[in-house]
Design a protein around this nucleic acid. Sequence first.
DNA 1: TTAATAGTGTCTATCAGACACTATACT
DNA 2: AGTATAGTGTCTGATAGACACTATTAA
Lengths: 234, 234
Amino acid sequence: LVVAKEAAVTVATPVAVTVDVAVLTVRQGRLGVLAERDGTTAGGWRLPYESVRERDLDAVAASVLESAGGVAEARDALFVEQLRTYGPMDDGRISVAYVALVAESTLTPSSVSSGRVFALDDLHETGVLDEADARVLDDAVERVRAKLEYTTIATTLVVEPFTIPELRRVYETVWSVTLHPANFRRKVLATPGFVVADDDDQGATTVRRGPDLFRRGTAALLHPAMLRPVDAES
Amino acid sequence: LVVAKEAAVTVATPVAVTVDVAVLTVRQGRLGVLAERDGTTAGGWRLPYESVRERDLDAVAASVLESAGGVAEARDALFVEQLRTYGPMDDGRISVAYVALVAESTLTPSSVSSGRVFALDDLHETGVLDEADARVLDDAVERVRAKLEYTTIATTLVVEPFTIPELRRVYETVWSVTLHPANFRRKVLATPGFVVADDDDQGATTVRRGPDLFRRGTAALLHPAMLRPVDAES
DNA sequence: TTAATAGTGTCTATCAGACACTATACT
DNA sequence: AGTATAGTGTCTGATAGACACTATTAA
């Protein structure tokens, strides 16, 4: 008993707390989620996770992202944010959930963990995730939908240089709406620091053609906000 | 060693995870925070907390609120929300933080835990809270400031029936700004479900005098939002 | 050439913010 | 009376959303 109590303080903590990450991306006009094989359930999938030991929660989340999605923290733009903490679960575990946004081309699901990107709607219907992970996923999507309104995180889902319509398709996909192209462009360009023109546009040698190219601006928050249409779905 | 490992799963979890609650209120035109004596530090104070055992995190938060602040969950309006999770701390503990909003008159700091309500600014300067708690408090205030914009949580900080100016003072206190009385009233009344007229206004016997009285409406979200002035302080 | 999309211009309803004014309460 | 606050009316500038039109690209 004494041994057990000692263990409670020094050994036990890591086992009981996990960081679970919902890695979201946009591909082919649909929202995608990174999942990996669940060893405990035959045929099941789960959100990538890692146990918390002595490292800070944010560091653990970054580690999960790198080992499961092949995304290094330094690499390109990346949005990672703590979502909320759930539990205790049925197994007594506390689950600290994170959301991450990654451009599809940056995301390389790790083969060692049998990672795979699911389309969100497919995944919801077939019930390949357990209830807890599905809950996390719902919250993650809702958080991202809300944050598109007043932050620049949408730009982490496109590859530089990008066009305004590409950025618009991110909003349309995440919000499940269609937006007015003219008004969208106007709003984006009217918001300081959201995007900047890509002048790096190979010189006079090649004739530029196609839509205007942009890069991410320096702003993190949007003033004014990009409010979603009132009739937007859930 | 076997005993220790067993303990890690069944016994250990509760010890390592705490729920810490930042209970905020408005009194005398200032933001107040509930703190209690910190037994481990002479002269120190800390946010009320409780260890997580088998109960759900939200239930633990409600328990903290009740035992430290004398606020029963059922009683009156109340805003409680998970803030975020910090850690591991220096002592290896994971801290799941919550914010709560309570009207001053509803808050009765528990004498058993030597509870006391501090004015936020006093508390910040004197450094009576440790760094971790101060961080939680900052995040809590910022969360509440943001949520005043698009939710009805401000009404949990006034006592029914209340006047529009009373509600306005909540906004002014939390945001540290002065608002235009006429425009504020117009916006509140133009937002469906924010407040409803208090017709319950003792009959014809007593002559009603003073400003109009209202009660909380049924809406949780504000459409349109009550945006804070652009020049609002951090 | 036709269809689809990118981009510009402009109009209108709505809202935030400011100001002027009246009414009521407290001293 | 005089001051402070509650409440109404109204104006102006900014913004969201809609529509019309031109330019460019791909079949």
